[in-house]
Amino acid sequence: MCSIGTGYRIKEKRTFIADELRRPTQKEFEEGLEFLIATNQINKDPLLSCFDSLFSINITGCIFDYESVYLKYLIENRFVKHLTADEVNDMLVANLTKPINAYSRIRDNEKIVGRSCWKVINGARHIFNSYLIRK
């Protein structure tokens, strides 16, 4: 007895978007990822040079840019998958000394800058943890 219209709606409900209870499958994620990878050139060289320049700037004067560019490059270059363990260790852990020291020095009297430092440290820590999980 279903009209064509009703039948169409039932069919629509079976599509992914309307299926509210099901957890997405690995394959569904991979379909989107493959598309992104196909349209994105992964290149870690800009990341390596970016680190050199980023960690040489005045952290208290340029903290916002520092934080933004730093995390943007980590993310855009899919950091955790495209660097070796030594590269991660050298650049992430060793270079974090500077923001950590800056944070401990300024957090009491310059809260905004301190918070930004903390975000760099915290963000990097989570990215590093993520690397360790995937290793």
Partner: peptide
């Protein structure tokens, strides 16, 4: 991309935070 965003949305919304892990993918 819209479907991928939906996958992320659904995974974040639907998992039991105490019993299931958010997938690496």
């Amino acid at each position: 991309l819209m479907r991928l965003a939906l996958c992320i949305d659904k995974e974040i919304s639907s998992i039991d935070l105490e019993k299931e892990t958010i997938s690496e993918v």
